[in-house]
């Protein structure tokens, strides 16, 4: 087995274990889905009329509200895969058995899947409660997927850093926010474009920026994670 194969096998095992644990404990999933539902209902009660408008300001507000809901749900839930290991004291067993890179990739994949599930649920709820119309569905899905990928790459390392801190949730938001702001701005612009029926040619530069951001943060995280994990 080559080093890369061994790494991917280890990451796959960690991802599978996290999914199995999550399905049995509902440690993160329930909290995230409840958060998404509450946000969609609360926003629809306040600004539900926005869905009926197609002017540029309304589209920007709808996009911003969607990404704010996703962001806060992500900040609430994405740190849990590492925090849970620390709280249940299983970090020691994992540190002794698994390579740091495999741990990072496994947790990263788990967080990505969790966020993609959250994307689907939140978007459906927004479409129902806010009566949001998506003019370019393909571009909208691409923006959501690429934005979520970038959000996950940026927050997984931060989650590992804060897992051993006392004030975990607060620290997670404080450390993650500066990293997330650039991608949030781009993702909101791209989503606005998709809601308004913008062409793929207009959306491609934004997708390229998001993919570059994802690659840069993923590489940086893979390089830095062993130091965080062994600290």
């Amino acid at each position: 087995m080559t080093t890369l194969q061994a790494l991917l096998c280890g990451a796959w095992a960690i991802f599978r274990k996290d999914v199995q644990s999550e399905l049995r404990t509902r440690y993160a999933l329930n909290a995230l889905l409840l958060f998404a539902a509450c946000t969609a209902v609360a926003v629809s009660l306040g600004v539900g009329f926005l869905g009926l408008r197609r002017d540029p300001q309304s589209l920007v507000i709808q996009s911003a509200l969607l990404w704010i809901a996703l962001l806060f749900a992500a900040l609430n839930g994405l740190s849990r895969s590492f925090v849970q290991e620390e709280e249940r004291r299983t970090t020691l067993a994992l540190r002794l058995a698994a390579r740091p890179a495999a741990v990072f990739l496994g947790k990263f994949c788990f967080n990505l899947v969790l966020l993609l599930v959250l994307d689907v649920v939140t978007t459906v709820l927004f479409v129902i409660f806010l009566r949001v119309e998506i003019a370019n569905l393909g571009l909208f899905v691409a923006m959501l997927a690429m934005g979520s990928l970038s959000l996950t790459t940026a927050t997984t390392l931060v989650a590992a850093i804060i897992a051993r801190a006392n004030f975990k949730s607060g620290l997670f938001a404080v450390l993650a926010f500066p990293l997330i702001v650039p991608l949030l701005v781009i993702a909101i612009q791209g989503t606005t474009l998709a809601l308004g029926g913008g062409a793929w040619s207009q959306g491609m530069p934004l997708l390229q920026i998001l993919s570059s951001y994802a690659v840069a943060t993923l590489v940086a995280s893979l390089l830095l994670f062993p130091f965080v994990w062994e600290a």
């Binding site: 095992a13 199995q20 404990t25 004291r89 299983t90 058995a97 495999a102």
Partner: peptide, 20 residues
């Protein structure tokens, strides 16, 4: 500590897998 929500066998399977 090992994973309480997994069975003994599942714990061993998992740790065997991460050890390739």
């Amino acid at each position: 500590a090992l994973y309480r929500e997994l069975s003994g066998l599942e714990n061993l399977r998992f740790f065997a897998a991460v050890r390739h």
